[in-house]
Amino acid sequence: MKLDINGTVREVEAPPEMPLLWVIRDLLGFTGTKFGCGMAQCGACTVHLDGQPVRSCVTPVSTVGTRKVRTIEGLSPDGSHPVQRAWAEADVVQCGYCQSGQIMTTVALLEQNPSPSDTDIDAALSGNICRCGTYVRIREAVHLAARLSHGGGK
C-alpha cells in the first residue's frame, strides 16, 4: 500500500491491521514517534493525519488511505518550527521520550487555536502523559510558541 508520509509517498508492505505506529517505526524507520502504551492512553505515538492529531498506536494502517501523515520528523529538518523553538527556549525536555507526542499535539492545537488559554491547553494536552513531569514548562512553551508563531497567546 501507499503511505503519504512527511510529503513523500512511500510504498509499504504491511498487514492491513498493523498499527500505523509500527509501520512508521519498524517498516519505515521513523523512530521519532514513540510507543508508550499501545491503547491511546499516553499520546507518545501522536502523529497528524491531514493535520489532525491521532494516536497511531490504535490506527490500523489500512484506515489511513490517502490522508497525509506527518510525524515529528516532518515538522522541520532542524528544530526550527516555532513550537520546537519554544520547547528549546523553555528548556522543557527531561528524558524526552514523550516530547514528540507533546509537540505534535501542540502544533495541531496552535494551528487551530493560535492563542490558547490555560483551559485550552489542559483540554488539548491531557491526553499526553509525561512521567518526568515537564507539564509546567510545556505550558510555558505552548504560550511561548503561540507568541512566536502568531503573535498571540494569553
Binding site: G32, K34, F35, T71, E73, D78, A88, V93, G96, I103
Partner: peptide, 16 residues
C-alpha cells in the same frame, strides 16, 4: 540542556 536539539526533533536514540 544540551540534549534538547535531539529530543525535540525525534532524532534522540532511546533503546527502543
Amino acid at each position: 540542556r544540551l540534549d534538547t536539539p535531539e529530543k525535540i526533533t525525534g532524532k534522540a536514540k532511546f533503546g527502543m
